[in-house]
């Protein structure tokens, strides 16, 4: 059905949106997507990619970007222009979606700190995946804000290093992409 142009210039302020992109998993497809963002000056906050349908060689790419509504519309349309792209959905614009991230967090410390570290990990449902006399590696999954919060709590307790997968997301309800 025909939709008139929405008022794209209503807002100059930027919004954070999560896009999910279904692509053919062929060589260079990720480079195409990333190259598009850099060539057109779009911003990537987080990017995750993996093949999700092995028999059909299709991958899902999740991109978090920050842009004005006008630029967000452009990003979606430019992505759709790429030949190996099947579909692009703006999960943020389409309503509530589930967003998750995984992080592995290394914390070193002794004595009281160690006890406190474990107590907090339990509260955040972070799993201990490695331990030594004076260190832990925790695995935590959740919304990025939860991961963020856990990391900042670990800071004073002997945080050594963090690796994060970046965000992946899916829409709620029964409909697929």
């Amino acid at each position: 059905m025909f939709k008139p142009s929405w008022d794209l210039e209503r807002s100059q302020s930027v919004e954070r949106h999560t896009l999910t992109v279904l692509v053919d998993n062929e060589p260079g497809v990720l480079a195409r997507v990333v190259g598009l963002f850099s060539a057109r000056g779009f911003n990537i906050d987080s990017l995750t990619v993996s093949e999700t349908e092995h028999d059909r060689h299709r991958s899902r790419i999740t991109i978090v970007t920050v842009a004005t509504p006008k630029v967000l519309a452009q990003i979606k349309l430019q992505l759709e222009r790429l030949v190996p792209v099947h579909r692009v959905h703006d999960l943020t614009a389409e309503g509530e979606s589930l967003e998750r991230e995984l992080a592995l967090i290394k914390v070193a410390g002794k004595g009281e700190n160690r006890v406190e570290t474990l107590r907090l990990a339990e509260a955040f449902r972070a799993n201990v995946v490695d331990a030594s006399i004076d260190s832990f590696v925790f695995e935590i999954t959740g919304r990025p804000s939860k991961v963020e919060q856990f990391i900042s709590l670990m800071q004073p307790l002997g945080l050594v290093e963090v690796v994060r997968t970046g965000l992946t997301a899916i829409s709620r309800g029964k409909e697929g992409m």
């Binding site: 142009s5 210039e9 519309a73």
Partner: peptide, 9 residues
């Protein structure tokens, strides 16, 4: 479609 609203709304 990407030409639409790219420069001028």
């Amino acid at each position: 479609p990407s030409s639409i609203n790219k420069n001028i709304v």
